[in-house]
Write a protein that binds this DNA or RNA. Structure first.
Lengths: 243, 243
DNA sequence: TTATCTTGTTGTCAGATGGACAATAAGCTA
DNA sequence: TAGCTTATTGTCCATCTGACAACAAGATAA
C-alpha cells in the first residue's frame, strides 16, 4: 500500500517532530473529483486511528523540503492512486490556528479532475479505505475538511462555467449529451438539449471523431474530442469560454 | 516606522532561525491595489540591503504561530500603512523550491483593494521607501514577485468582471463615469458610455445618493453608492454579476 | 415487416441582450 | 448668450437565449 501520509491519521499528534526532510507545519490536501455516470464524486480516505474512527479525510501528506508545491500534490496523488496526468490546480491555503490538533499545520489544497477513463482505476489501485463518495452525500469529515470541500465545490462550479476544464472529467471521446450531463451534475441543474448543443458547437472547441457511439439501444450519437489547440488560438484572440 | 518585516530584506539570510514565534518557512505577501485617477497602481517597498539595491518588493512578513493567515495579512497591512478595513482576499500560495535564497520559504499571497478615499493615506503614512507604482510600468522586483504580481493582475481582471469588487477601489460615493473609468483602467480597454450605464443600472446594485458631483466645470453627474444588501439578496436568488 | 420507442439532430420564433451611435439636457465659462 | 464639456436618454439592428416543435436514425418488439 502506498504511503498516504495523512497528517494526523497515520501519525501520532507529535508526528511533526518525527517527520524528516519535510517543511514543518505545511501539508498538502487533494480534492480529487470524478464523474460516476451522472454523479460528481470526490476521493476520500477512511481514518483508522481510534480518535477519528469512522470519519473520512481528504488524501494528503507532507511537502518535502526540496519539492515544489505542485510536484508534492502530484506525487501524493500518484502514490495514492497510481494514476498520473490529471488536471491539477491549486485551490486555496487553509491555516486556521486551531484547524489541526496540538500542532499548527497550514495546508495547501489542490483540486484534481479524473477522466472517466481512469475513474475506476483510481480507487481500485489503492487500499480498501480509499473510495469515491458523492459530493451530495458526504460522510463525516475530520478537521476542517468539510469546509475545504465546500470551498472546492464552489470554485469547481465557477471554473467549469468559465474555463473549458469539464472535458477533463470525460473520456477522451464523448457525446454532446455526456457533456451536457456533466454540466447538469456539477451545477445541479437541467439544461435544454438543443440549446446546449448549439452553444457548445458555436464555440468551435470540439473536433468530430467521425465515429459514433457503440452498443446503445437507440440512435448512436456522434463522438467529439476537445480541441486544446483551437482553444489556445481562440483564447489568444480574446475568446472567453462561458456556459 | 512600522516593522515591515520583509523576508530577506530587513533580515540576513539566516533570519529564519532568529525569528521568534512565527511559522518557519511560511510568509505572507500582500498585493495592494489602488486607483490613482485612471491608473491602476500597486504598493511596493524599496529594498535597502546591498544585495537588492534598487529593486522593489511586495510588502510582506512572517505569520505568527498563533495567528490566522488572513489576520496576519491584515496585521501586516495595517502595520505598513496604518489603514484598516480593506477588501482582502487570498490570492495563491507560491513555493517554488528556489524562489527564495538559501532557505525554503513558501509565501501566501493576498490581494487588497484600497478605496480612493484612503489612497493617498496609504503610502504617506509610512516610510519613504513605500510607494504606489503603476502596474503598467513596474520596476525590477526581487525573487518571484514579478510572477506573483502577474498572477494577481490576471485574477483581479477576472474577479472584477465576475464579482462586484471594483467598488472597493472607488470612494464611497461615485459617478457612473468613475465606475466606467475603473473598468477601463483595470481591463485596459474602452467602453461605450450609454451601454455601460444601462448594463450597470439594470443590475439594481447601486442606490442613488440624491446628490450631484461638486466643483466640476460641466454638468454634474449623479452620485451612487454600492448597495451590498441588494447584492446579497440578488445573489441568493441566483443573480450572477457580469461585466 | 411494421409499429413503437428512445435518443439524436435540426428548425422556428418571440423576447432579451449588446453594441453602435444619434439626440437631447444641464451646467460652466468666456 | 454662445460655445464647450459631460450627463443622460433614445433608437436601431444583429445576435443571443430559452422554450419547444419537428424530423431522423437506429434498435426492439409485436
Amino acid at each position: 500500500m502506498p504511503n498516504t501520509h495523512i497528517p494526523g491519521s497515520q501519525h501520532s499528534p507529535n508526528a511533526l517532530s518525527l517527520a524528516e526532510n519535510v517543511i514543518k507545519a505545511l501539508s498538502i490536501d487533494n480534492l480529487v473529483f470524478g464523474l460516476d455516470d451522472d454523479d460528481l464524486k470526490i476521493l476520500l480516505v477512511k481514518q483508522t486511528d481510534p480518535l477519528h474512527q469512522g470519519k473520512w479525510a481528504l488524501p494528503g501528506g507532507w511537502i518535502r523540503y526540496d519539492e515544489n508545491l505542485r510536484d508534492a500534490a502530484y506525487r501524493l496523488l500518484e502514490e495514492l492512486t497510481g494514476v498520473r496526468d490529471l488536471y491539477l490546480e491549486q485551490l486555496k491555503t487553509f491555516g486556521r490556528v486551531d484547524r489541526f490538533p496540538s500542532e499548527r499545520v497550514v495546508t495547501i489544497a489542490y483540486y484534481a479532475l479524473v477522466s472517466a477513463d481512469k475513474f475506476s482505476l483510481v480507487a481500485g489501485q489503492s487500499a480498501a479505505d480509499v473510495s469515491w463518495q458523492s459530493v451530495n452525500k458526504l460522510p463525516e469529515l475530520v478537521y476542517d475538511h468539510a469546509e475545504i470541500i465546500e470551498h472546492g465545490l464552489k470554485v469547481l462550479r465557477h471554473q467549469v462555467c468559465h474555463q473549458p476544464i469539464g472535458f477533463n472529467l470525460l473520456p477522451e471521446k464523448f457525446t454532446l449529451l455526456q457533456l451536457q450531463a456533466l454540466y447538469e451534475a456539477i451545477l445541479n441543474t437541467t439544461l435544454d438539449k438543443p440549446n446546449f448543443r448549439r452553444k457548445i458547437m458555436k464555440m468551435n472547441l470540439l473536433s468530430p471523431c467521425n465515429e459514433k457511439q457503440q452498443g446503445v439501444p437507440h440512435r448512436a450519437a456522434s463522438l467529439y474530442r476537445f480541441d486544446a489547440e483551437a482553444y489556445k488560438h481562440l483564447s489568444e484572440s480574446g475568446f472567453a469560454f462561458e456556459i
